[in-house]
Simulated assay, not measured.
Amino acid sequence: MLIGKTRAEVVQLLGEDFYEYNPEHIAYILGLKPGIFSIDTDALDIIFKDNVVIKVKQHQT
C-alpha cells in the first residue's frame, strides 16, 4: 500500500505524528500489541530512497 508513494503522500495518509531517524527513515508508533504481558509498543518503519517508499516493516520498540 505504501511502496512507491512519496513522503508527502505517506504523511497525508498517516499524519504528521512520526519520529524521523533521518530524511530517508521515519517511524509511526502503532500502540501496544494486545496481550497480557505486552509492555512494548509496535512501530511502523518506512524507508525512502529518492523521496519514494522502498521498504515498510513493523517492529517492537
Rank of each mutant, 00 (worst) to 15 (best):
22 N>L: 07
3 I>Q: 01
19 Y>D: 10
6 T>C: 09
25 H>L: 10
34 P>I: 14
40 D>Y: 02
42 D>C: 07
27 A>P: 00
21 Y>L: 13
42 D>N: 08
52 V>R: 10
11 V>Y: 01
29 I>T: 04
21 Y>H: 14
20 E>S: 15
49 K>D: 06
57 K>A: 15
22 N>T: 04
37 F>P: 02
26 I>N: 00
20 E>F: 12
40 D>S: 09
49 K>L: 11
9 E>Y: 02
20 E>M: 15
6 T>Y: 06
40 D>P: 01
14 L>R: 02
9 E>Q: 14
37 F>A: 10
42 D>S: 11
34 P>W: 12
22 N>A: 05
33 K>Q: 14
19 Y>M: 05
3 I>E: 04
1 M>A: 08
4 G>A: 12
57 K>N: 15
43 A>H: 02
35 G>Q: 05
34 P>T: 13
1 M>Y: 05
22 N>E: 11
49 K>G: 06
61 T>C: 01
47 I>C: 09
19 Y>H: 12
52 V>S: 04
55 K>V: 07
32 L>P: 02
48 F>R: 01
50 D>S: 12
59 H>N: 11
9 E>P: 09
53 V>Q: 01
38 S>T: 11
59 H>T: 09
56 V>R: 02
30 L>R: 08
33 K>T: 15
50 D>W: 08
38 S>C: 03
22 N>C: 09
2 L>T: 10
16 E>P: 04
54 I>N: 11
56 V>Q: 05
10 V>Y: 03
1 M>I: 02
61 T>H: 10
50 D>G: 04
17 D>W: 05
54 I>M: 09
36 I>P: 07
60 Q>T: 11
17 D>Y: 05
45 D>Q: 08
50 D>P: 10
43 A>K: 08
47 I>Y: 15
51 N>L: 08
57 K>F: 15
27 A>V: 00
14 L>V: 00
28 Y>R: 02
29 I>V: 06
32 L>A: 04
58 Q>K: 13
32 L>Q: 04
12 Q>S: 14
61 T>M: 06
51 N>E: 11
61 T>Y: 12
24 E>W: 00
30 L>Q: 12
14 L>F: 11
2 L>C: 07
56 V>Y: 00
6 T>H: 05
14 L>K: 06
43 A>C: 01
50 D>K: 09
41 T>Y: 03
55 K>I: 06
17 D>M: 05
13 L>V: 00
45 D>R: 06
3 I>K: 14
48 F>Y: 10
38 S>H: 09
2 L>A: 11
57 K>C: 15
20 E>K: 14
4 G>K: 06
4 G>T: 07
44 L>D: 01
17 D>H: 05
42 D>A: 10
30 L>K: 12
42 D>Y: 02
53 V>H: 02
16 E>Y: 08
50 D>R: 07
42 D>K: 11
7 R>M: 10
37 F>D: 12
39 I>Q: 05
58 Q>W: 02
28 Y>M: 03
17 D>P: 00
18 F>C: 03
15 G>T: 08
32 L>V: 06
53 V>D: 00
47 I>H: 15
